[in-house]
């Protein structure tokens, strides 16, 4: 379990990193927390010729209040910091609630928000939660920069729209409207494992208690975060009572996802778990929206 030889760069500024990515293109791979990339290299499943280590770019580690009432997170911000950050817990409570589910404290000390999004593991929590919140990411290259809605960022298994010369530098999470509730839950074999299925729900009620907006996003049941549109449509404009939530959860598990089976859970079991989790997170989100 030793990686093949590679070139290693440790730039201290974003500009240097972008220059390295521009120079090496597909041969280069940015190294963030290394919690996925390093094992992958040791297993020789990935063999990048060039590693661009981002850990010395201190400018990429921050959590800031945004003018719109949301929050901006630097790509290299460690999970452990996000987990304990007061601004996150005030402005993005769904993220706060999700953090303890991500692996173990040791891994959260190294892993980064941007790294998790860019790696795009279909069972990872932060991609699903960022999509559920309607977040967006800022990608920079020597060619310029662009904002990408999280929902459009993930395009397949471990695949995003990032070009090889682009670096994910920031995540923007919008503010939650009034009368909005949220919830995250997952089922994992052991505490800290990648979940068999996870679900994030965000519900905004109108002044008559009906669903003005609903977001339900799954992880572990597709090639990336899966937005449960059919289920969301069932609830939109409706009063989110027990029956409606049940119907939405049922719909989500049948129409919105197409899970595959593996050694830990069959496709059928994953569908079942998706239904259970959808019901649980939607119920909790509604409770929070109402309170």
């Amino acid at each position: 379990m030793k990686p093949p030889a590679f070139k290693y760069y440790a730039p201290t500024t974003v500009e240097e990193a972008l220059a390295l990515l521009a120079e090496h293109g597909y041969d280069a791979k940015p190294l963030a927390g290394g919690q996925s990339l390093i094992p992958t290299m040791n297993f020789r499943l990935a063999a990048p010729a060039v590693l661009v280590d981002l850990n010395r770019i201190s400018d990429l580690s921050y959590i800031r209040a945004a003018d719109d009432g949301g929050v901006r997170v630097g790509a290299m911000t460690r999970h452990a910091r996000v987990e304990r950050d007061a601004l996150i817990s005030a402005r993005a409570p769904l993220v706060h609630e999700t953090m303890p589910h991500i692996a173990h404290p040791q891994i959260r000390n190294r892993g980064t928000y941007g790294g998790s999004l860019a790696h795009a593991d279909p069972a990872a929590e932060l991609p699903a939660v960022t999509v559920a919140l309607g977040g967006k990411v800022l990608a920079r290259s020597q060619r310029g920069e662009r904002w990408i809605p999280a929902e459009e960022f993930f395009i397949g298994l471990f695949t995003t729209v990032l070009e090889p010369d682009e670096l994910l530098v920031e995540v923007a999470l919008p503010p939650l409207p009034a009368r909005t509730g949220w919830a995250f839950d997952e089922v994992a074999r052991r505490h800290g494992d990648f979940a068999l299925v996870g679900a994030a729900g965000v519900i905004t009620l109108d002044d008559r208690g009906r669903c003005a907006d609903v977001r339900l996003v799954f992880m572990g049941v597709g090639e990336g975060p899966v937005v449960a549109r059919e289920a969301m449509n069932i609830l939109k404009g409706e009063e989110p009572g027990e029956e409606a939530i049940r119907a939405a959860a049922e719909k989500a598990s049948q129409a919105d996802i197409d899970p595959i089976g593996d050694v830990h859970a069959s496709a059928d079991f994953r569908r079942h778990l998706a239904k259970v989790l959808a019901r649980r997170v939607l119920t909790k989100a509604v409770e929070r929206a109402q309170s």
Binding site: R190, H191, D193, F194, V263
Partner: peptide, 23 residues
């Protein structure tokens, strides 16, 4: 877990789940 080809499907600690202090 072996598949029908005799390949071990649980060949790392990601898939071979030993209990941790949490379990």
């Amino acid at each position: 877990v072996y598949n029908e080809d005799g390949q071990l499907l649980t060949a790392s600690f990601m898939d071979y789940l030993i209990p941790t202090a949490m379990e």
